[in-house]
Amino acid sequence: MSAAPHDARRALAAIALALLSALFFTQTYVLNRAIASDGGHWAWTASLRYLITLPLLLPLMPWQGGIAPVWRALRAHPGAWLRCSAIGFVGFYVLLAYAADSGPAWLVAGSFQFTVIAGMLCAPFVHRHAPPGDPRRRIPRAAFAIGALIFAGVLLLQLGHAQGRMDGAAWIALGCVLGAALLYPLGNRLLLRHLERSGEDLNATQRVFGMTLASQPLWWLIAGYGWTQAGAPAWPQVLLAGAVALSAGVIATILFFQATGMVRDNPAALGAAEAMQAAELLFATALGVWWLGEAWPHGIALWGAALVVAGIAAFAWMVARPPAGRAPDPRALRTDRGA
Score class of each variant (00 low, 15 high):
E200M: 06
S2A: 10
T285W: 14
A223Y: 00
L190C: 08
A142W: 13
I312S: 02
D329N: 13
T228Q: 12
P217L: 04
G179C: 03
L60I: 14
W219Q: 00
G39A: 08
L19N: 05
A100M: 12
L192F: 14
I139S: 05
P62W: 09
A284G: 08
L302Y: 09
P185F: 13
L96F: 15
A99W: 05
G226K: 02
Q277G: 15
P236M: 04
L281F: 13
I87W: 06
M211D: 09
R197Y: 01
R72N: 13
H161A: 14
W44H: 04
L31N: 04
I251G: 06
G160V: 08
W296E: 08
P323N: 07
W291E: 04
S2C: 04
V319C: 07
I67S: 10
H6V: 07
H77A: 14
L96W: 13
I150R: 01
H129N: 06
I15D: 15
G133E: 06
R321H: 15
H298F: 07
Q113C: 08
E196K: 05
L246N: 08
F125E: 03
L195M: 14
V263Q: 04
S21K: 00
L23V: 13
F114I: 11
A73N: 04
R49K: 06
D38H: 14
Y50T: 13
A214L: 10
P297M: 02
I251F: 07
P322M: 03
Y98H: 08
L48H: 06
A162C: 15
W290F: 09
R72W: 09
L307R: 07
A279Y: 03
S21H: 01
G288I: 04
T53Q: 10
A80V: 10
A16M: 05
D134P: 02
G88W: 03
T285H: 02
T45A: 15
F24H: 09
H194K: 03
W291F: 15
P135S: 15
A243R: 00
A305Y: 10
V116M: 09
I300W: 14
A152K: 01
R83P: 00
P104W: 01
G39W: 10
I87N: 11
T212P: 00
S247K: 00
A148R: 00
I254P: 03
I251Y: 13
D134F: 12
A80P: 01
L239R: 13
V208R: 00
Y29M: 08
P330I: 06
L17G: 14
A43L: 01
W235S: 10
M166Y: 04
L51V: 14
A273M: 08
S37P: 02
N188P: 09
G164L: 03
L96V: 12
A4V: 05
L107T: 09
A22I: 05
W296P: 02
S247I: 04
P62T: 08
A162V: 11
G210N: 03
F209Q: 13
H129A: 11
Y29F: 10
R128F: 14
W235Y: 06
A286I: 11
L213A: 12
R49N: 12
P267I: 07
A339L: 09
W81Q: 03
L58I: 14
L270H: 06
